[in-house]
């Protein structure tokens, strides 16, 4: 059980999750599921980054109890990246949800193919 995939289990999981999310975003016809896929994909990246920054046995990089020594804390940069990334992903999710609502109001469907078909029909009419 010492194959690299098991040693780096977190990375493996995050890449698998990324794949799942990516596939969902690309292939699913339902808009809500697409958005879910997008979130899974983003979360997978955050997991990956968080794992990269984590050093076993150390604390979160918040200076407490007066310990100033660098070796006591984990790498703070990935945590910062994850925070930024979450902000980005929240805003894109919000935008996509808003768009989905508008489309649902207009076409009464969440199926992207159907929406596109109806939009074309609407234009022709």
């Amino acid at each position: 059980m010492n194959t690299p995939l098991f040693v780096n289990m977190e990375e493996t999981v995050s890449i698998i999750l990324f794949g799942i999310g990516f596939t969902m975003l690309m292939l699913h016809r339902n808009l809500i599921k697409k958005i879910l896929g997008m979130n899974i994909m983003d979360t997978a990246v955050y997991l990956f980054l968080a794992v990269k920054g984590y050093i076993r046995g150390r604390m979160v990089p918040i200076v407490a109890d007066g310990i100033q020594d660098v070796s006591a804390y984990i790498n703070p940069v990935p945590s910062g990246l994850v925070l930024t990334g979450i902000v980005v992903s929240v805003s894109t999710t919000a935008l996509m949800l808003a768009l989905t609502i508008r489309l649902y109001e207009r076409y009464g469907s969440l199926d992207l193919d159907e929406i596109l078909m109806r939009a074309k029909e609407e234009e022709r009419a």
């Binding site: 768009l99 508008r102 489309l103 992207l112 939009a119």
Partner: peptide
Amino acid sequence: GRSLSSAIRYMIMSQLGSG
């Protein structure tokens, strides 16, 4: 309608790319 539906497609493709 067409601009909304194309916006969502644009978003989806863009998200694939930026992911």
